[in-house]
Amino acid sequence: MNNRTQTQHSYKTRAKRLPKLISGNRQWVGLLYISPWLIGFLILELYPLMASLYYSFTDFTLLRKPEFVGLKNYIQMFTKDHNFWNSVVVTFKWVIIAVPLKLTTALLVALLLNKKLKHINFYRTVYYLPSIFAGSVAVAILWRFLFMREGLVNQILSAVHIPPVDWLGNPDIALYTLSMINVWQFGTSMVLFLAGLKQIPGDLYEAGRIDGANKIQQFWSITLPMLTPIVLFNLVMQTINAFQDFTAPFVITKGGPAKSTYLFSIMIYDNGFKYFSMGYAAALSWLMFAAIITLTAVLFWSSRYWAHYEDGGK
């Protein structure tokens, strides 16, 4: 008897609970699941972002409390710090050379790898391989060995009677050498391009062929326009990354020779963690943030004119 009422009871509550579980209450539970991220976001992203803005208006070494100094840091960087303008120029050069070079390579290789061939997966693996060591010190060391004065590249050059080049020691060349090295790890962009190429419907090419378009015309009027959303995505992500590149220039050239590879991130590191001028470093980092936001906004805005969306945009 007792047993039966219990079952009846539980059936009743279950019947009552069911609709609530599916709508209503059940949805609020979601907040519980994302709460770790929410906490992390507030403490590790939002607070530091605001704090670094505040620090950028202070004189702050770790030993003393931050002292509000207004625009002093910004004035100093624009008018007194001779490293600053050099670093700005070097960083923009770096972004302008390294990003298009990497993306063009990634696209060309993706076109090659998009063919339906046997063992194509093996080749994809090989071409991606360098990218698994992205940002590693070992790879930076490897390149330093290859391009130093007595390194393998110059040894090969001298074997074919070409005079050696001071790849990393000549201030006019070092940044270009580094951007060349940087191309090597194009794997991520390549894989994204490959995924994009797979999405292009085959009948577009069919129609192109009927209209008598050759391979090159097909590339310019079908492949490339269809890929523009992925070009935009790659461009944005690679630009953001390029602004912050650190490991390779830090380990290979240490920002030298003659500060010719002194990227902004190295400058932030030096000011913040070598000289412990946290306020100044925060100002530098906010300036970099502003540059990145501006550039990203320009890219997104300009994409209206060159990016093609099947559904007519947005």
Partner: peptide, 17 residues
Amino acid sequence: STLMLPPTVVIIPRYIL
């Protein structure tokens, strides 16, 4: 959007924290 937030910008307050 935090995917696009450059870690270099927040590294100093994080370090202090």
